[in-house]
Amino acid sequence: MNRIRKFFQFENIGYLYVLPALLYMMYFVGYPIIRNIVLSLQNVTVKTLNAPVKELIGLNNYLELFRDKIMINSLINTLVFTVACLIVQFMIGFALALFLSRKFASAKMVRGLLMIPWMIPITVTALIFKFIFSTNVGILNQSLMLLKLISAPVDWLTSPGTAMFALVFANIWIGIPFNMILLSTGLTIIPTELYESASIDGANRIQSFFRITLPLLKPTIESVLVLGFIYTFKVFDLVYVMTGGGPVNSTHMLSTYAYKLSFGIFQYSKGAAVANIMFVVLLIVSLFYLKLTYEEEEA
């Protein structure tokens, strides 16, 4: 009793404050994660979904998946997709942010307009790009033919080699504003005096970019890249609408493959296992991100 009373002393009241949030997180975040892990260790298909006792088969689902060509491809696809999008989005976004940080009349308006791709629902974007990349009626092929860059229409979305390119292209278009706006915000907090005094000391543009802008922008860049990685890695709707993982399973991402396994061919446990593999990758990246922000707060 004494111990309980002691616990409820003023300095410990903080634990109580945290309790509701903890319960909430445990129920809405913790439970699904654990449930999904358990599901991935069982063998749940159409036949066993309603069985009272579900057989545990250990890591068999994972072992089978790593022998599955489509699974390995989806993993590689997701990584390639994420890295390719991230690099290009970041570079273009950064260039635009630098450009728009200069004080000219329409800078604010242009920045606003550039946010539009970010605000359109992804399904709509995906449908638009599906039309753009269409072989016979797509505007891209028409334009390229007019410019005499290609002699015959390219099968953008119907051949395995180019479908991935089309997806990356569409996703970059969506992702640029996100990079641009975060980097723009980062740029505004760099005091202009630094650039002024640097130019008095005789530094040229390139020097002040590498010596002032980049180092001061480092925390922003880190979070843009990490958040960008997480967003891009989880891509689903864009791929689902544009190619549905095809042609011939060549553009499946982990997310679309997990969906297909679970709700297309009723391999619930395997679907859960794929989702868990995704979860592990993202967990590692998130921990890395938390560590970065923690270090910065410390410093």
Partner: peptide
């Protein structure tokens, strides 16, 4: 948050 803001196809 991204998916929430953008209204996914789901």
């Amino acid at each position: 948050q991204k998916t929430e803001n953008k209204g996914t196809g789901d």
